[in-house]
């Protein structure tokens, strides 16, 4: 079916009759998408406009929506500091890759168990899974810091990486919901064929769950990449800090009423966001264009 879809897009006229009307894009569809994208993009255009502004404009906060001046040198200025930006980038990559791997490895199996396997106490345990997300992280921060300190993990990447290998409420719940949409006959058939629970997960569920796991990967990446609070609390050495914290240094000032150099702040934000945009742009085919149309098509 994936093949059919692709063909249909390439040559819409030839395949029009075979595409259900619900999937056909009308001029109205395009108009709406364009308006929505444009509206959502206004703030982003502003980000770019500010990034290209001169220091005078920043000092007077006299920005315009559409860029009027183009100070591209701002993009090199953020690297012209005593902060090790390259090192920050590397740290971000290391932390994010491990975090993503941890979540993608653990969440699938746990979510599958909650969706399919029956056990006493499961529902109660599931409520605990959900309930763990209802306590603001701000309040457990200090006890957690003490815990990690006792483990000797302060000033290492471990507090930022290791918990990911145990999944979290959000991802367990997400996978559970995705699994529960799949027809149960699939696993039953596989069990009859002699697969155990792990076999069913590994051979049947995992391939069908890929979009959900990719989504988890993207969310984890986005979160870890942009998070500066965790690194701020757990890391002390500058050489260990991630890029998101580096961007905080650009926007931080020594006096409370002092305005940050907004042009550099926006340049930093763009540089921080750009890799994520590329990852999402390239990664979306695994998210949306894999053939996982449940049941019949997926298993064979």
């Amino acid at each position: 079916m994936a093949v059919l879809t692709d063909v249909a897009v390439d040559r819409p006229t030839a395949k029009e009759t075979r595409t259900p009307r619900a999937f056909r894009a009308t001029p109205f569809t395009y108009a709406t998408l364009m308006i929505v994208s444009a509206v959502l993009s206004v703030p982003l255009v502003l980000v770019v406009s500010i990034a290209l502004s001169s220091d005078q404009t920043v000092n007077a906060n006299a920005f315009s929506i559409i860029p009027r001046e183009f100070h591209w040198e701002n993009f090199t200025r953020v690297f012209d500091t005593s902060l090790p930006m390259g090192r920050f980038l590397l740290n971000s990559v290391i932390i994010s890759l491990f975090a993503v791997a941890g979540q993608m490895l653990s969440s699938g199996l746990i979510g599958y168990a909650f969706a399919r396997l029956r056990a006493p106490g499961k529902n109660a345990l599931f409520m605990v899974v959900i309930a763990t997300m209802m306590i603001p992280t701000q309040i457990t921060m200090i006890p957690q810091f003490i815990l990690f300190k006792e483990l000797g993990w302060i000033n290492t990447f471990l507090p930022l990486i290791i918990p990911n290998f145990f999944s979290n409420g959000f991802n367990v719940f997400l996978v559970r919901q995705f699994v529960s949409r799949l027809p149960k006959e699939i696993d039953e058939a596989a069990m009859i064929d002699g697969l155990g629970f792990f076999g069913v997960y590994r051979r049947i569920m995992l391939p069908m769950l890929m979009p959900a796991l990719i989504a988890i990967g993207i969310f984890t990446l986005t979160y870890t990449w942009g998070d500066f609070m965790g690194p701020l609390i757990y890391l002390n050495d500058e050489s260990k800090m991630p890029l998101a914290l580096g961007i905080q240094y650009i926007s931080s000032t020594s006096a409370a009423m002092q305005a940050p150099p907004w042009n550099l702040v926006m340049v930093g934000s763009i540089l921080l966001t750009l890799p994520m945009i590329i990852v999402y742009y390239l990664g979306q085919r695994y998210l949306y264009e894999m053939d996982i149309s449940g049941g019949s098509a997926g298993v064979k």
Binding site: L33, S37, L40, I247, V265
Partner: peptide
């Protein structure tokens, strides 16, 4: 809308997801 067979759907999807990627300091300012 995005589920329809739209040309440039990768671009539209990216534009719609993009706001969630912008760091908060920048988003708040704009």
């Amino acid at each position: 809308l995005l589920n329809k067979q739209v040309r440039a759907r990768k671009l539209f999807r990216t534009l719609i997801y993009l706001p969630t990627l912008v760091p908060l300091v920048a988003a708040a300012m704009v």
